[in-house]
Simulated scan of single mutants.
Amino acid sequence: MNRNLALGLLAALAAALIGSGWQIASRHGVTTTLGPVELAALRYAVPALVLLPLLIQTGLFPQGLPRRRLGLLVLGGGLPFGLLVMAGMQWAPAAHMGVFGAGSVPLFTALGARLVQGEPISGLRLAGLLLVVAGLAVFGASSLADAAQTWRGDLLFILAAMVWAMYTLTFRGSGLTPWQGAAVINAWSSLLLLPMLLALGAPRLLTAPWTDVAWQALGQGVAAGLLGLVTYMIAIAKLGAARASLSAALVPLSTALGAAWLLGEPLGAGTLVASGLVACGVALASGALGRHG
Rank of each mutant, 00 (worst) to 15 (best):
A269C: 01
G128V: 03
R114G: 12
S174Q: 08
R27H: 13
P93H: 13
A15F: 12
A274Q: 06
L10D: 00
A6P: 00
M97L: 14
L39C: 06
G78D: 09
I236M: 14
L39V: 12
L73H: 08
L55I: 06
P106R: 06
L218H: 02
V213W: 04
P178N: 09
A224L: 10
S190D: 02
A15T: 11
L226E: 11
G77Y: 12
A260P: 03
E265W: 10
P53K: 11
Q149I: 06
Q180G: 09
P62A: 06
Q117K: 13
Q57E: 09
G225H: 06
L51I: 07
A241T: 12
L284M: 13
G201A: 11
G77E: 04
A279T: 10
F139V: 04
D146G: 10
L111R: 07
D146T: 15
K238L: 02
F108S: 00
P195D: 10
L169C: 02
L267N: 07
L239C: 08
L176H: 05
V105S: 02
I158H: 03
G128N: 06
G35I: 01
A48C: 11
G29H: 00
G21S: 07
L239K: 04
L250P: 01
A202V: 14
A113W: 00
H28G: 03
A241N: 05
P209V: 09
L49Y: 06
M89H: 14
L277S: 07
I185L: 12
V37A: 10
V213S: 09
L205E: 03
A235M: 01
A45W: 11
G98K: 06
W215Q: 11
V30C: 03
L169Q: 00
S20R: 01
A148T: 13
T150D: 10
M162D: 00
M233L: 10
P266I: 10
L200V: 11
L49F: 13
E265T: 09
A244G: 12
A102S: 15
T150C: 02
L10H: 06
G35T: 04
L39A: 05
G258A: 14
P62D: 12
L13H: 06
G88I: 03
N186A: 08
V251N: 01
L144D: 01
S190Q: 01
R172I: 04
G8P: 03
L75Q: 04
K238D: 02
V230M: 15
A14V: 14
G201Y: 08
T255H: 08
L191A: 15
G225W: 05
R243T: 11
A41K: 01
L246H: 09
L54C: 05
